Amino acid sequence: MQILRPINSNDFAAFKQIAIESGHGFTSLPVDNDLLQEKISRSERSFAKQLNKPFDEGYVFVLEDSETGEIMGTTAIEAAVGMQIPLYHYHLGKTVHHSRTLGVYNTVDILSMCNDYTGCSEICTLFLREPFRKGLAGRFLSRSRFVFMADHETRFAQTVIAEMRGVSDNNGRSPFWQWLQEHFFSIEFPQADHLVGLGDKVFISELMPKYPIYANLLSEQAQAVIGQVHEKTKPALKLLEKEGFEHRGYIDLFDAGPTVEAKLSNIRTVQHSVVAKVSIHSNISGQARAISNQGLTSFKATFTDKCSYDSTTKTLSIEPCVAQALGLETGDSVRTFTL
Score class of each variant (00 low, 15 high):
304 T>K: 07
41 S>P: 02
100 R>P: 14
27 T>W: 00
152 H>E: 10
143 R>A: 15
328 L>Q: 08
155 R>C: 09
211 Y>K: 15
63 L>Y: 01
146 F>A: 08
101 T>I: 14
170 N>D: 14
326 L>E: 11
317 S>Y: 06
233 T>M: 14
227 G>K: 03
317 S>N: 01
186 S>L: 04
164 M>H: 12
6 P>L: 11
323 A>T: 12
79 A>Y: 07
122 E>S: 13
245 F>P: 09
337 F>N: 12
188 E>F: 07
79 A>P: 09
140 F>H: 08
98 H>G: 02
318 I>Q: 09
58 G>F: 10
67 E>M: 09
18 I>E: 06
236 A>D: 01
153 E>M: 10
142 S>K: 01
12 F>L: 15
157 A>W: 00
308 S>A: 12
148 F>C: 13
319 E>R: 09
209 P>A: 05
201 K>V: 15
160 V>T: 07
51 L>P: 00
38 E>A: 15
10 N>H: 08
233 T>L: 11
4 L>N: 13
110 I>H: 00
221 Q>I: 04
118 T>G: 02
326 L>G: 06
201 K>L: 15
259 T>V: 14
49 K>A: 12
95 T>K: 00
123 I>K: 10
207 L>V: 05
149 M>R: 05
63 L>W: 01
337 F>L: 14
22 S>W: 02
303 F>Y: 14
155 R>D: 09
183 H>A: 03
